Amino acid sequence: MIPFLQNSRLQTLIAALVNGTPLCMGVETFNKPAKVGSGVPPHQDNAYFCQEPPDVLTVWVALDDVTPENGPVQYLAGSHQEGLREHTPSGVKGNSFGLAEAVDEVSVSVALLQKGDILIHHCQTIHFSAPNVSDYPRLGLLMVFRGEHTQDSPEMKDAYHRARALMESSPS
């Protein structure tokens, strides 16, 4: 286990946020290299995770400073309470899905972080980021946790597979 995740206060917080015993679904890095890191279209993570109930969160650790120029994550306030919206293939390499409808970007919060800062977001929070246009990378470590009571939703999985099939059949 990653040492800082053994902190009892963090474990208690994660358990409260997933409404029960947390299980790690995955760990990954999210890389935005200097000058070439792509933008990420508005989306909700549960379009990928397909969990019911949506008691899932992402712990995002900044491994580099996050500035306005290197593509900070932007969150749409309160969107986690509005349910899962329709997603379609995004056409953005490495970011297969995006929301089917536009997002009102007026009410977003921009996550500017220092190396070592941690963000936690709910799987139904709408979020996105701009490309990295800076001379500095933006690297993040992501850990996804779900409550052990959550289950794969067959309906959501079907929608996910239909959208993936559309993406794979479209010309590059």
Rank of each mutant, 00 (worst) to 15 (best):
H127R: 06
T150V: 14
V110F: 07
H80M: 00
S38G: 09
V61L: 13
H122Q: 07
V144E: 02
K93M: 08
H43M: 06
G98D: 02
S169K: 14
R146G: 07
S153H: 08
Y136R: 15
V144T: 15
F128V: 03
V36K: 12
K157W: 04
D45R: 01
P53L: 10
T58G: 06
Y75I: 11
G140T: 08
D45F: 08
F128S: 06
C50P: 06
D65G: 07
P42C: 08
R138F: 11
G94P: 03
E148W: 09
Q124S: 00
V18Q: 12
V18P: 09
Y75P: 00
K115R: 15
Q44E: 05
D55V: 10
E105P: 04
V18W: 09
V73C: 02
G26I: 07
N7G: 00
G26D: 05
P68H: 06
L57T: 04
Q74W: 03
T29M: 10
P68E: 12
T88M: 12
V18K: 10
A159Y: 01
S96L: 13
A62W: 09
R164M: 13
P68Q: 11
Q74Y: 04
T12F: 00
R85V: 01
A100K: 13
T150Y: 12
Q114Y: 08
G83V: 06
Y136V: 11
V108H: 07
Q114D: 11
P89E: 09
G94R: 07
L139Y: 12
R85H: 13
L5M: 15
L23I: 15
H122F: 02
Q44D: 03
C123W: 01
N70H: 09
C50F: 04
A165R: 15
N46G: 05
R138P: 05
G20N: 09
I126R: 00
F4D: 12
P68D: 11
T67N: 09
P41N: 11
P131Q: 12
V27P: 00
T12E: 12
P42R: 12
T12G: 08
Q11H: 11
N132A: 08
H43G: 03
G37Y: 05
A62T: 04
N31V: 08
G116C: 07
E168L: 15
E101K: 14
L119E: 01
Q44K: 09
A16P: 04
H80V: 00
